[in-house]
């Protein structure tokens, strides 16, 4: 394999990995404040893309379509929290997980009824003539996704460390009871997490649509991969989530490139889930995890 090719695989991996990273960030936000694994996360990504497509069809310029999609899906996240999560905040994780599974089924079906079954396109933000870096070509759109991911990670770090609300969120993730005793409104923190998480995933969805199109069923696979990325990076760690997403994308691309036999791409998705299992068995706190994992 030539160096050019190697770089091309890395570039492919970054393209897929950046959307895993954004989805993983969404998981992280919710997990951090509630310990819930939100199985509807991929549906937020899907909704973001589809809403933007409709806005653009109605003549909205791309930036406006982007903002509307992010805001709308953020609201969906808030409504979801109010309706389904709020009544179960003290009901145990199993019930909460099941509710998110139910929501994912419902959201997906409603999206199918609204937008139909076929994939829909969205034009790229800044043209689709590829940029060639050291012999590897990358789409401008991928740079947009990467840029957005970086901005969000930095913004989140600032938010968590510098703002009072952010500190409150962190306090809740460490010890909800103690946080509540200190006068932090736990329920408001949870609400905020769901809204933010849905908005971030939606932003990712809008960004990725020009590269890969969007359909009602696309959220499931993205959600699963984002989840695997989360575990890889360590549940609850935003930087780990992003790193996990990119590493996962690159590993998948390299699986295609390095496995010596023809047709190795069939095992590409297997890699993600194999890594997930290995990490769970060998290092359940993830590559970059800090949270302690309690043994029974």
């Amino acid at each position: 394999m030539s160096f050019d090719q190697f770089l091309q695989y890395i570039s492919s991996g970054i393209t897929s990995g950046s959307i895993y990273a954004l989805t993983a960030l969404g998981f992280t936000l919710i997990y951090n404040s509630t310990d819930i694994i939100n199985f509807a996360q991929g549906e937020f990504v899907m909704l973001g893309g589809l809403v933007a497509i409709s806005m653009h069809e109605w003549g909205a310029p791309l930036p406006l379509a982007f903002l509307v999609a992010v805001a709308l899906v953020g609201i969906v996240g808030v409504i979801f929290e109010q309706l389904a999560i709020r009544p179960l905040l003290s009901a145990g994780v199993l019930a909460q997980i099941i509710v998110t599974i139910g929501a994912s089924l419902a959201i997906r079906t409603v999206a199918m009824l609204i937008w139909g079954r076929e994939s829909l396109p969205l034009p790229p933000f800044s043209g689709d003539s590829p940029i060639v870096i050291l012999g590897a070509s990358i789409l401008p759109q991928t740079l947009w996704v990467l840029g957005l991911t970086l901005v969000i990670v930095v913004a989140l770090q600032l938010f968590y460390r510098r703002t009072l609300t952010g500190k409150a969120v962190r306090a809740c993730s460490v010890n909800p009871t103690a946080a509540r005793l200190m006068g932090i409104s736990y329920s408001r923190v949870v609400l905020l997490s769901f809204g933010l998480s849905a908005a971030i995933s939606a932003a990712g969805g809008v960004m990725i649509t020009p590269v890969s199109f969007m359909s009602y069923s696309a959220g499931a696979l993205i959600g699963l991969k984002g989840f695997a990325a989360c575990i890889l990076g360590g549940l609850g760690n935003p930087v780990g989530a992003v790193a996990g997403g990119l590493i996962l994308g690159i590993l998948e691309a390299l699986t295609v490139g390095f496995l010596p036999f023809s047709g190795s791409s069939g095992y590409k998705d297997g890699v993600a889930f194999l890594i997930l299992l290995v990490i769970l068995f060998a290092r359940p706190q993830g590559l970059f995890g800090r949270r302690t994992v309690e043994k029974v």
Binding site: D35, I37, V93, L94, I97, L224, F227, A228, I231, G266, Y267, D269, G270, A272, F273, L274, L276, L277, L280, F281, P284, V293, E294, K295, V296
Partner: peptide, 25 residues
């Protein structure tokens, strides 16, 4: 054996990954 030693829902995650791997195979 490894996942149920841990507190939390690691079995859910492991079985999710396992289900996908079986499907791919």
């Amino acid at each position: 054996v490894p996942t149920l030693k841990l507190r939390g829902h690691y079995l859910a995650m492991a079985t999710l990954g396992f289900g996908e791997i079986v499907f791919i195979l």
